[in-house]
């Protein structure tokens, strides 16, 4: 079971996800970010600041100001 941590921030935080800028008003870990997007973790690959992040690191990895994330989610077929 993934735990989602949320802390409220004094100011907004800019994060780049899949090439687009997003503003966050609360701190969030990678697990929370995936959950917010209603993605099934087993179908998702996350690259955090140019490093592939293993699923067992999603909870402990907090998103910081100016972080860059690439989030890919997949469905089957081909």
């Amino acid at each position: 079971m993934l735990s989602i941590r949320v802390f409220y921030l004094d100011k907004t935080m800019r994060v780049r996800i899949n090439g687009e800028d997003f503003l966050f008003t609360e701190s969030v870990n990678v697990a929370g970010l995936v959950a917010q997007r209603k993605m099934r973790p087993e179908t998702v690959v996350v690259e955090h600041n140019n490093v592939i992040l293993a699923r067992d690191k999603w909870e402990e990895t907090l998103i910081n100001e100016n972080d860059t994330l690439e989030i890919l989610s997949f469905v089957g077929g081909g």
Partner: peptide
């Protein structure tokens, strides 16, 4: 075609 292998390839080649 399988999600498991799609993820595997992304993990190896995304970066």
């Amino acid at each position: 075609d399988k999600v498991e292998y799609k993820c595997l390839m992304a993990e190896v080649f995304l970066g």
